[in-house]
């Protein structure tokens, strides 16, 4: 019973804090986060990850191909830790930024703050979410370059 209560408390606080578990897999960090922000697996659902991993030769316009062994290990990691919440619900694509919840949360940000060189696109989580690396996307930790806090 205690465990269940503890589980509920953690779950509720995570939802409130807008947090996801840290991407702590060493191979994932080395192979994926060497080129871009290390998106936490929970930001995309399992079918999205399968799409991503199914075409690394053309990974959003770039060749990110891996050896079969590395590919299989990372596919297992991301699908086993894939998202299954309102964050990823209804997202039928392989883009985190196409999730309905993601779109809703970012809808009020002016284009000029997204297009600027310091940000480039909504794919650069860590450009504004100062604790994105730790899986913390809460509003109190947002600082948009050339704008400031977003609260």
């Amino acid at each position: 019973m205690r465990r269940i209560i503890l589980g509920c408390v953690i779950l509720v606080s995570m939802t409130w804090a807008k947090s996801v578990p840290v991407a702590n897999d060493a191979l994932y960090q080395k192979e994926c986060a060497s080129c871009h922000f290390g998106y936490q697996p929970a930001l995309l659902n399992a079918s999205g990850w399968q799409k991503v991993m199914g075409n690394l030769q053309d990974h959003f316009g770039t060749d990110a191909s891996l050896s079969q062994k590395e590919h299989d290990a990372i596919l297992t990691y991301v699908t086993q830790n894939a998202g299954n919440s309102k964050l990823t619900q209804g997202n039928t694509t392989m883009r985190i930024s196409q999730s309905p919840y993601f779109i809703k949360e970012h809808r009020r940000i002016p284009e000029r703050l997204i297009d600027q060189p310091e940000v480039k696109s909504l794919s650069q989580c860590a450009a504004c979410h100062t604790k994105a690396e730790q899986g913390d996307y809460s509003e109190r930790n947002i600082v948009i370059p050339n704008y400031g806090r977003w609260e």
């Binding site: 871009h36 316009g61 770039t62 480039k120 450009a127």
Partner: peptide, 9 residues
């Protein structure tokens, strides 16, 4: 150091 053209990394 360099910087990834697509991602700024």
């Amino acid at each position: 150091s360099g910087s990834n053209l697509n991602t700024n990394k």
